[in-house]
Design a protein around this nucleic acid. Structure first.
Length: 912
RNA sequence: GGACGAUUAGCUCAGCUGGUUAGAGCGCUUCUCUUACAAAGAAGAGGUCACUGGUUCGAAUCCAGUAUCGUCCACCA
């Protein structure tokens, strides 16, 4: 397409899908097709697999934008770059969604359907959602290697998970044991911690003694569980009870014989209740811990139906409420109840039915985190995982999350991996139907299957996602006799994991342990943690609140690149980000700006109408603005590369934005319309524009690839090389200009001079524009400008008169003068101490306004001068601050003093 | 209750290891269809960087405390 035929605005909807198809068809998302030299470094990342429960939300979009940026940046820098896609079966979450759906649509529970039919329902549900998610992922522009796509519950991963379980079992770190679970007596199922809702409620705290001579009164909100008490715990330093510690008391509590040991534990709060707790290990999490610590017997009081066990004859089959009432009555009768007070506490409820949860002990499978392992040099999973982070083998970005990681790991208990649901990885354990002690653990079912019964439970979803970095790379097939093969050899450990900080503990820590166990190596070198996406009011976006912005809607309304930018700029690692539609819209406007910048550059580059016949040296000169933009751009490459290397995407994006919009468009392109060295401009623009598209590509891949494509480039932008800043170095022989034309070296300034001189021209122009505006000089009206300057500056300014006259200033003539012009009405404006600008006006000067303005400027200058004066008057500053800074401050003072002097003269004259 | 973070222009946020008279985007005011872009350009207004101390020649930046908000963990007998 010819550049002048490009539409006025960027129309993304027509091109995005085509561009993505082109990328995908090229096969270059797959590192095997990149044709890299063998010694190229690797860069691997796994996509945190989204749950298949729902479509993508802004959080996913943010994750995809960040990760794709990292991936594209590395790919362009010549890394063997692999980004592995996939989805997560999310056992509990998915089962819940399908169960709810089933109930709503057909009025059925999973028990009505039975295990097999229910699982069929789940699979047909996930086949749909999975497709949607993968489609949406492509819409975001994610350059994932689809040939390696995985699902945490596909055949390959099922094999891996089963193998892992068997390996761990044989190693002796998977074991079966009792644990308290959150049991819903109504739903008849266990609940995960995040399925519990807490509700503040008022309840009674009862204070009583078990029997008359019992030495310590205890306080409880659940007297009925006291039937199972085995101990009373007090604080070791509690003076009231110290003397009883270690003693055992026997007696009758409401018709039951109890044997109560007095134990001491620091966890007990001396000031709560009586400072003494009756310990019921079977029905309270804290008591369970105390029970484990002090090796107490577990006596069950409440059964799975939420009723008192038949063992307690007086209360058998009563609900806990009824039993509580009866016990309190009995205590009152016997005069044992000492106090009854109303307190507020948190009640745990089942999120589904609102029934209050009963903690019950039950048999579960565990992974031991404390057992020393030979393969880890005698260290446990916990110790080794902590060590890897301590030794900086794994680094967190931002680093403060180390603390959270350590805190979590150090307090880690054995990991309960069995879940009483149907959807997920079935535990590869079979029990013999006749011989209950016979157990079969294998990745394959036993041959005489009719004699065996498989464990009904499935594995915690984190068990399979914890293996994600290596299960996606062909483990266990690719791991033979302790040696890594194929993909596993090339791509593991991965270089980076990018994920939300909220699953640092749940997922990241597990991945580290699983990888250490399976491969004796870390899963990733760096962990970049992004924040959450909040709505305009700072609330977490969620479906139930209805405050979410759908990324697909935004892509349709604006464009993908705009959505990506809004998620990348102004977003720093570990911090939450508020997103509003306005932000996306403003970045859509920017993509349009970029579109027009390239369109215009192409117009200038391809414009052959001005063929130069005569050899005129000015056509080949590098002007001040040329040198300025080259220095700016060189600097930009350097800075952006550096910032991206340290994962500061936001700042890198901002720098790119400022250069593109403000340096390039506002100044250089406007000047390019004016200056006559078109051949030089063409070369500069061509190079800068090409490399600018490269720098932008990881942020906004679609528009950049398209603008690349219309220039009929052979290679995809996606796989072209990252720009090098020495290409823009004047002293470097590889400088892009040397090969194209010869230029007069006399005109080349140092970077410092270029900056200083260009800023001077800018200042003059901006001040002329301002003065015109403030004095209501109509645009058509051309005016005279007078400049008072020394010889050096005069030379610079006179070289640039063309620009000063034509860049939205409407200047007729620039005249150099020695002192303030007489006979002409002018506005005076010192640009620096030495350069003074006079702008001629015809209308009567609004003296009052002008005096006011001068006064204001003077005030700020004087304020500045005072700051400098006090600084320089400080002897310690002169003595202790670096010489360069002292020198700088002195120069500043000189400058500002001169400016003040000039302004004061002007002010004096005006007042006269 | 414990841990961690945030507090900078009306709004959303940048400001790396201390040295700018404190920055951007949006919004606001004024002017302009100037042949890349009105989804634009030009000019401008707007901040004692939450508060109180400390370290330092020098603090938005480092340290301590206070207040408010947020997140995670534990949920208290």
């Amino acid at each position: 397409m010819l550049s002048h035929k490009l539409p006025k605005t960027y129309q993304a909807e027509k091109i995005e899908d085509k561009i993505y198809q082109k990328w995908e068809k090229s096969g270059k998302f797959n590192p095997d097709n990149l044709n890299l030299p063998p010694q190229s470094p690797n860069f691997t990342m796994v996509l945190p697999p989204p749950n298949i429960t729902d479509k993508l939300h802004m959080g996913h979009a943010s994750m995809l934008a960040i990760e794709d940026l990292i991936i594209r940046f590395h790919r362009m820098r010549g890394y063997r770059t692999l980004w592995v896609p996939g989805t997560d079966h999310a056992a509990i979450a998915t089962q819940n969604v399908v169960e709810k759906k089933l109930l709503q649509e057909k009025g059925l529970t999973r028990h009505d359907l039975g295990r097999e039919k229910f699982l069929q329902e789940v699979w047909s549900f996930l086949n749909k959602t999975q497709k949607t998610i993968l489609h949406q992922t492509r819409k975001m522009g994610a350059s994932l290697d689809w040939s390696r796509e995985a699902f945490t519950l596909d055949k390959q991963r099922q094999k891996a998970v089963a193998q892992m379980f068997v390996d761990m079992y044989q190693e002796g770190i998977i074991y079966q044991g009792e644990r308290l679970v959150n049991w819903c007596p109504r739903c008849h199922s266990t609940l995960a911690d995040d399925e519990i809702e807490y509700k503040p409620q008022k309840t009674f705290l009862y204070t009583f003694r078990y029997w008359k001579n019992f030495p310590i009164p205890i306080a409880t909100t659940r007297p009925e569980t006291k039937l199972g008490d085995i101990a009373v715990a007090v604080h070791p330093q509690d003076k009231r009870y110290k003397k009883y510690i270690g003693k055992i008391y026997k007696g009758n509590f409401c018709g039951n014989f109890l044997e109560i040991k007095i134990i001491a534990d620091k966890k007990i709060d001396k000031n709560f209740g009586t400072g003494a707790v009756g310990v019921t290990p079977a029905h309270s999490t804290i008591d369970w811990e105390l029970g484990e610590k002090h090796k107490l017997e577990i006596k069950k009081v409440i059964n799975e139906k939420g009723e008192i066990h038949s063992f307690y004859k007086k209360f058998k089959h009563l609900s806990s409420q009824e039993a509580r009432k009866k016990i309190i009555e009995e205590l009152e009768q016997k005069g044992l109840l000492e106090k009854k007070e109303e307190i507020e506490n948190n009640l745990s409820l089942c999120y589904r039915c609102g029934t209050s949860i009963e903690p019950l002990p039950s048999k579960q499978w565990f992974v031991s985190v404390d057992k020393p392992l030979k393969k880890l040099g005698g260290k446990s999973l916990k110790e080794k995982s902590i060590e890897m982070v301590q030794k900086n083998k794994i680094q967190f970005i931002p680093s403060r999350f180390r603390k959270r990681y350590f805190y979590w790991m150090e307090n880690l208990h054995d990991w309960c991996i069995s879940r009483q649901i149907w959807f997920g990885h079935r535990i590869p354990v079979w029990y013999h139907r006749k011989n209950k002690n016979k157990i079969y653990v294998n990745i394959h079912p036993p041959k005489d299957i009719q004699n065996w019964k498989q464990d009904p439970d499935v594995l915690d979803t984190w068990f399979s996602s914890g293996m994600w970095t290596f299960s996606t790379l062909g483990w266990p097939e690719n791991f033979k006799n302790g040696k890594k093969l194929n993909d596993l050899k090339y791509f593991h450990p991965t270089q980076m994991l990018e994920t939300g900080y909220e699953i640092l503990t749940l997922w990241v820590s597990r991945m580290i342990m699983m990888s250490l166990f399976a491969l004796q190596e870390i899963p990733f070198e760096k962990v970049y943690l992004h924040g959450m996406i909040l709505d305009e009011n700072g609330k977490k976006m969620s479906k139930s609140k209805g405050n979410g912005i759908d990324p697909l809607d935004m892509i349709k309304k604006y464009n993908t690149d705009a959505v990506r930018l809004s998620l990348l700029i102004g977003n720093t690692p570990g911090n939450d980000i508020r997103l509003s539609e306005d932000k996306i819209a403003s970045f859509r406007n920017f993509t349009n700006k970029l579109w027009n910048i390239i369109k215009f550059s192409l117009l200038l580059i391809n414009n052959d109408t001005e063929k130069i016949k005569k050899i005129d040296t000015t056509y080949y000169q590098l002007t001040l603005s040329d040198q300025w933009i080259i220095y700016e751009f060189k600097n930009l490459i350097q800075e952006v590369t550096k910032l991206l290397k340290i994962y500061n995407f936001s700042l890198a994006g901002e720098k790119l934005y400022n250069f593109t919009k403000h340096s390039l468009a506002d100044w250089y392109l406007e000047i390019a319309k004016i200056e006559r060295n078109k051949n030089v401009k063409k070369i500069i623009l061509k190079n800068i524009e090409e490399d600018l598209l490269k720098l932008w590509h990881p942020f906004i891949p679609f528009i950049t690839e398209y603008l690349w494509e219309i220039q009929k480039k052979k290679k995809l932008l996606m796989i072209s090389n990252w720009p090098k800043n020495n290409k823009y170095d004047f002293l470097n022989k590889n400088n892009f200009l040397y090969s194209s034309l010869t230029f007069n070296k006399k005109n080349i300034y140092s970077k410092k001079e270029v900056e200083k001189n260009f800023n001077l021209i800018k200042e003059i122009i901006v001040n002329i524009r301002r003065i015109r505006k403030e004095n209501n000089i109509p645009l058509g009206k051309k005016i005279d400008v007078f400049i008072q300057a020394n010889i050096q500056d005069k030379k610079i300014i006179s070289q640039e008169t063309k620009i000063i006259k034509n860049l939205f200033t409407y200047v007729k003539e620039i005249k150099f003068i020695q002192k303030q012009p007489q006979n002409v009405k002018t506005i005076k404006q010192p640009i620096t101490g030495k350069i003074i600008l006079y702008v001629a006006i015809e209308n009567a000067l609004n003296t009052k306004e002008e005096i006011k303005r001068i006064e204001k400027e003077l005030q700020s200058l004087i304020k500045f001068k005072n700051i400098l004066n006090t600084k320089l008057a400080n002897k310690d500053f002169i003595k202790k601050a670096p010489a360069t800074i002292v020198k700088k401050e002195k120069e500043k003072l000189q400058e500002v003093t001169k400016k003040i002097k000039e302004l004061k003269l002007y002010q004096k004259k005006l007042i006269q």
